[in-house]
Amino acid sequence: MKRTHLPLNGLRVFDAAARHLSFTRAADELAVTPAAVGQQIRALEDMLGVVLFRRTPKGLELTPEAEAGLPALRSGFLEFEESVRAMQVGQSSQHLTIAAPRDFIQKWLSARLADYMIANPELSIVLIAAEGVPDFTESNLDLAISLTDGAGGHEGLALGAPRFVRVGAHEAKLTANILWPGSPDPSSAGAIRVPDAGLAIEAAMSGLGTALVPALLAQADIDAGRVRAVEDGKDMPLGYWLIAPLPQWRQKKVKALVEALQAA
C-alpha cells in the first residue's frame, strides 16, 4: 500500500480501541463518540479485508490478524512521535538566521541585537546581508528585514512608520543631492551616488550634500548630532518590514525577537 493511501486516522483509532478493548474508552481518549470509533474500525476492516475485533460475552477481543499487526503499528507511532519531536527542536532551538540590508544591520539592527543577546545569553545569531525579500527556501532563514511596501505573500509587521527624512551636515561643504539605489529622490544633475542609504547618511555627515533616507536608519545619527534633519520627515510607500513565511513566523523564537525589535 502506498504511503499516500495509508489510513492513518483509522489506524490511530484502532490503536486506541486495541489498548482499551473498548470503543467507549477509546472514544473518550480521542474526544469523539463511540459511534465514530465504530465507523472508523468498520472502514478500516473494509479497506484491509480483515476482521479486527470480535465481540464476546466478556467484551471486545482482538483477532489474530489484529494482534499480528499491533507491534509494528505501535512501533510506527513511536517513530512518528520521535519525528515530530525532532522537527520541533528547530523551533525551540536558540539559533536564528536573519537576513537584512547591510546598512540596516550596521545602523540599526546590530545595537538592538546586542541588547537582545545580553538578555538571552544562550542565543546564537547568523546575519546575512540581503536586499529585498530573500528566498526563504534557499537561504534557510528564520526572519528577514526588508525595505519594502509590505510583506508580500509572507507574514509580516511594519517596523516603525514608513517615514523618510532629509539629512545633511551641520556645516555642509556641498549642496549635492546624495542618491542611493531605491532612493525616492529624483535623479538630478550634480548628484552623488552611493551604494546604499547607510553610505548616503555617511556622505551627508561628511558634508557632501543632503540625502533623503529612512528616518529609522538616520535617527541614531540625528540624536547623536552627527547629522541634522534639514527638512521635516515625510511619509513614503517604503518602510522596514519584519517578514517570514507562516511556519517560521509561528516559531516561538521568531515571535520573541519580532516583539523585542518592535519595542526597541
Rank of each mutant, 00 (worst) to 15 (best):
V84T: 11
D221M: 11
I243N: 00
A35K: 11
E81D: 15
A172I: 02
P214Q: 07
L147H: 13
R193Q: 14
D135P: 08
H95N: 09
E67M: 13
I125E: 02
Q219I: 13
D115S: 13
L147M: 08
F80D: 05
L11F: 04
Q39D: 07
E67S: 12
A244F: 00
E79H: 14
G90T: 10
A176W: 09
V32T: 14
L21Q: 15
V32P: 05
S92M: 07
T33G: 11
A68C: 08
V254C: 03
R102M: 08
V51Y: 08
D221K: 11
K234T: 14
R166A: 09
A169W: 05
I201S: 01
P245V: 03
D232K: 11
S75V: 04
L123R: 11
D115W: 04
E67F: 08
A18K: 03
A260K: 10
S75A: 15
G150C: 04
V258G: 07
L6S: 07
E79G: 05
R250L: 14
L113M: 09
K58Y: 09
V254Y: 02
L257H: 01
K58Q: 15
Q248Y: 03
V227R: 01
L141D: 01
E138W: 05
L11Y: 05
S92I: 05
K107F: 15
R163W: 12
A197E: 03
W241M: 02
N140P: 00
A189G: 06
S206W: 05
P186W: 05
A169L: 05
E202W: 05
A172G: 12
T148V: 15
F136E: 00
E131H: 10
H170C: 01
G59E: 03
M1G: 15
I178H: 01
A36D: 06
R42T: 12
G225K: 06
G209R: 03
P121V: 04
S124Y: 07
A158E: 10
W180N: 03
A263F: 09
A86R: 12
E171T: 12
D15Y: 03
K234A: 13
G76I: 01
P181K: 08
